[in-house]
Nucleic acid binder design. Sequence first.
DNA 1: AAAGTATCTTTTAATATTCTAATATTCGTA
DNA 2: TACGAATATTAGAATATTAAAAGATACTTT
Lengths: 107, 107
Amino acid sequence: MPLHRFKAEFFKALAHPTRLAILDQLRAGERSVQELQQALAIEQSNVSQQLAVLRNKNIVDSRKEGTTVYYRVRDPMIFQLLDVARIIFNNHLIDTQEMLATLNEEQ
Amino acid sequence: MPLHRFKAEFFKALAHPTRLAILDQLRAGERSVQELQQALAIEQSNVSQQLAVLRNKNIVDSRKEGTTVYYRVRDPMIFQLLDVARIIFNNHLIDTQEMLATLNEEQ
DNA sequence: AAAGTATCTTTTAATATTCTAATATTCGTA
DNA sequence: TACGAATATTAGAATATTAAAAGATACTTT
């Protein structure tokens, strides 16, 4: 079924830590690239690249004001989607503990 | 933020046409590998590979009965997630039309 | 134990994604 | 028009994902 290919593309756009972090930032409203860069503490070109992915999948919109570009999430439903995802995460405490173990290993 | 890495992994598991098709099949309840294979009309080992991805991310559970293995979605919230995703899709008719155009090109 | 099913895993080559660094573009201002 | 600031794009190496084929495992029946 070809519709599944498009939905897969959509989920693929969400399937990246930086892009999820960007979307979390945008929960509070629109943000400039610079603000995002500072909040996430990553390189400028990296922020732009990830924003480009979200833009190409129509997940975010941008607005230019002078040299500053402001981004915002196109459909608030996206946040609802992320909320449901969070609930699914919380539902599986066993997995969460495994996750915490992994997180500890990393330091 | 490291939590975002885990959420990204979760979305990555959904970001594949075959896996989305499998989840759609599982909406009606548990299904054997064989049933999934027939419904999706793809190779058996491919079905197993995709099921392995869903299993590793704790999205599906399996149950063995003789030589048959039945799969089911672990948390019904997954379907709610897919439903919200569908709504987001439907909200953007412009994109949908672009999508249909692409679909036509393919034949 | 042998043979047949159903499922799973491994391997390999092709393709896609990611990160980093470098370069380009766009706009405001001197 | 030249410069600085903000953002975007490109290029290339490293890594990850994919599909297909082959081989391995597990269970049932004989």
